[in-house]
Design a protein around this nucleic acid. Structure first.
Lengths: 205, 205
DNA sequence: CCGCAACTGGACTCGCAGTACAGTGAAATC
DNA sequence: GATTTCACTGTACTGCGAGTCCAGTTGCGG
């Protein structure tokens, strides 16, 4: 069994697009099955309820997001060995990627579930939590590596700094959604980049 | 008519608390009226539908948020005349305020509506938009005043920098909700503060 | 040929939003 | 003192979407 029915994947694609556009609650099962051209019963064959759908969506989303970060910062590291400079390159790449996405980044999935969490069970909420903690660890590691070479010129909480990447992306995406603009997230990333540049460069003593 | 029935305000209070805790869709009219001890019909006497409730909540929330910013940065300005230092004081006060709120800040209202926007009509979405644009203008003005005295040591887009305050607050609140921690927003504000400190201080040329 | 995976179809329950509308008690207005 | 208006209550009804139950179908692999 190489692929476990492409119907399931199709349902996830349609659901994800709709959830990102309108929110989870506004996305009806009716409409998902209409898009996938299967019956309502077919949907419930694949997902026991909307919670199961949400969980599957989140899992898939987190996986692709992690792969994206892996690729992006690996590529950045190839371009420059230095931890600080490769981080700056990575953030630039991330910002470019965000502004090139016409419909906006799917990053919203995290925020979207965070703000409707009572609709979901503990499992979904925990997935969300683990994903953000994962990013905290990922970026804190990278920042520690930088700090080992370049003494930060201000004392900073490394966990908070690690979180700052997620925070800036999520915050930017909130603005983007609310303002109906399209490059706020990318601009905010560039400001974060500017901060890191200043933070990790030698200052007069 | 000095007060226009306190029932309306009670409904808004109960609704706001519930929306912040569980999200808008998960908050039923049934439950609001139970809390306020009135009948369902009573609710519809005050609000024609859930959209009207959302709009009233947002309006009230934006007003109090603006007053809060007015007070806070006015107080900061009293403590220090200098635009940069009063900004730094203001952000510190904001961070302290955020971490002192046991239940978490209501700032989420903006993000909550942004992520469920198809549930709302154009009026609600526009209110949201105007509020964020208002904050952009407010903070951009303050940053321009600072920049007139302290040359920023990196070129920055002033609109984006103005947005950064909202972005950092919203992003921090998303993390806070998702992680079930309670001072992420305040930590993120402190990192923004650290950025501004570095950005607007003279560097070696 | 059997069995299982991947469905379809139909009927039903439940909760929630929203509508309609008649009625009521108290206070303000004439 | 009668009348109007405000701020509701109560009942009854529509409609939608989630979720359940279950019987039946189609195709494929052993």
């Amino acid at each position: 069994m190489v692929e476990k029915s492409d119907t399931r994947a199709r349902l996830l694609n349609i659901a994800e697009a709709s959830v990102l556009e309108k929110g989870f609650e506004a996305t009806s099962i009716e409409e998902i099955v209409a898009g996938a051209e299967i019956s309502r019963s077919g949907f419930f064959y694949h997902f026991k309820d909307k919670n199961a759908l949400a969980r599957a969506m989140l899992e898939r989303y987190i996986d692709t997001e992690n792969e994206l970060y892996d690729d992006l910062f690996a590529r950045a590291r190839e371009l420059n060995e230095d931890p600080l400079h490769s981080m700056l390159i990575g953030l630039k790449l991330l910002a470019e990627m965000l502004s090139e996405m016409p419909t906006g980044h799917p990053g919203c999935v995290i925020a979207a579930t965070a703000y409707q969490d009572r609709l979901f069970d503990e499992g979904v909420r925990d997935l969300n939590r683990q994903a953000i903690l994962g990013w905290r660890t990922r970026f804190r590691g990278m920042f520690e590596e930088i700090a080992a070479v370049y003494e930060p010129c201000e004392p900073v909480n490394m966990d908070a700094l690690g979180d700052m990447v997620s925070s800036v992306v999520e915050g930017g995406l909130v603005l983007q959604r609310a303002l109906r603009e399209h490059n706020n997230a990318s601009e905010q990333i560039m400001l974060l980049r500017s901060y890191l540049k200043l933070l990790f460069s030698p200052r007069p003593s």
